Amino acid sequence: MSPRGVAMPDIKERLFAAAERVLAQEGPGALTSRAITGEAGCAKGMLHAHFAGLDEFVAELCLDRFARTATRAAELPDRAGEGAVAENLRGVALALFDSGGPAVAALAMTRPAAALRIREALESGAPGFAAIQESIAQYLAAERQLGRLPQSADTATLALAVVGTVHHLLMTGLPGAPDPREQVERLVALAAAGTGPPAGPAHTV
Rank of each mutant, 00 (worst) to 15 (best):
residue 1 M to F: 10
residue 2 S to I: 07
residue 3 P to Q: 07
residue 3 P to I: 07
residue 5 G to D: 08
residue 5 G to V: 06
residue 6 V to M: 06
residue 9 P to W: 00
residue 11 I to Q: 04
residue 13 E to N: 09
residue 14 R to N: 02
residue 15 L to E: 06
residue 19 A to W: 01
residue 26 E to S: 14
residue 28 P to C: 08
residue 29 G to F: 02
residue 29 G to W: 02
residue 30 A to S: 10
residue 31 L to W: 04
residue 34 R to V: 03
residue 38 G to S: 07
residue 38 G to C: 05
residue 41 G to V: 08
residue 43 A to E: 13
residue 48 H to V: 08
residue 49 A to E: 09
residue 50 H to S: 01
residue 55 D to K: 03
residue 56 E to P: 01
residue 56 E to V: 04
residue 56 E to L: 07
residue 57 F to C: 04
residue 60 E to R: 14
residue 60 E to V: 02
residue 62 C to M: 10
residue 63 L to P: 00
residue 63 L to N: 02
residue 66 F to Y: 14
residue 66 F to C: 13
residue 66 F to H: 13
residue 68 R to H: 05
residue 69 T to V: 04
residue 69 T to Y: 00
residue 76 L to E: 11
residue 78 D to G: 12
residue 79 R to N: 06
residue 80 A to S: 13
residue 83 G to A: 13
residue 83 G to E: 12
residue 84 A to D: 15
residue 86 A to I: 09
residue 86 A to R: 14
residue 89 L to K: 06
residue 97 F to I: 07
residue 97 F to Q: 15
residue 103 A to R: 13
residue 103 A to G: 12
residue 105 A to K: 09
residue 107 L to A: 10
residue 110 T to D: 03
residue 111 R to F: 06
residue 112 P to R: 05
residue 115 A to T: 12
residue 115 A to V: 01
residue 115 A to C: 08
residue 116 L to F: 08
residue 116 L to E: 15
residue 117 R to V: 00
residue 119 R to C: 12
residue 121 A to E: 04
residue 123 E to Y: 00
residue 123 E to I: 00
residue 123 E to F: 00
residue 125 G to D: 00
residue 128 G to Y: 04
residue 130 A to K: 11
residue 133 Q to S: 00
residue 134 E to A: 04
residue 135 S to F: 01
residue 136 I to T: 14
residue 136 I to L: 11
residue 138 Q to D: 15
residue 138 Q to E: 13
residue 139 Y to R: 14
residue 140 L to N: 06
residue 140 L to C: 02
residue 144 R to N: 13
residue 145 Q to P: 01
residue 147 G to D: 13
residue 147 G to V: 10
residue 151 Q to K: 15
residue 151 Q to L: 14
residue 153 A to H: 07
residue 156 A to W: 10
residue 159 A to Q: 03
residue 160 L to T: 11
residue 166 V to W: 07
residue 169 L to D: 11
residue 172 T to E: 06
residue 174 L to R: 15
residue 174 L to C: 09
residue 177 A to V: 05
residue 178 P to I: 01
residue 178 P to T: 00
residue 179 D to N: 15
residue 179 D to S: 12
residue 180 P to A: 07
residue 182 E to L: 02
residue 184 V to T: 14
residue 185 E to M: 06
residue 189 A to M: 07
residue 189 A to P: 00
residue 189 A to Y: 01
residue 191 A to N: 02
residue 191 A to Q: 07
residue 193 A to Y: 05
residue 194 G to I: 06
residue 196 G to H: 12
residue 198 P to W: 15
residue 198 P to D: 15
residue 199 A to S: 13
residue 201 P to L: 10
residue 204 T to P: 10
residue 205 V to A: 11
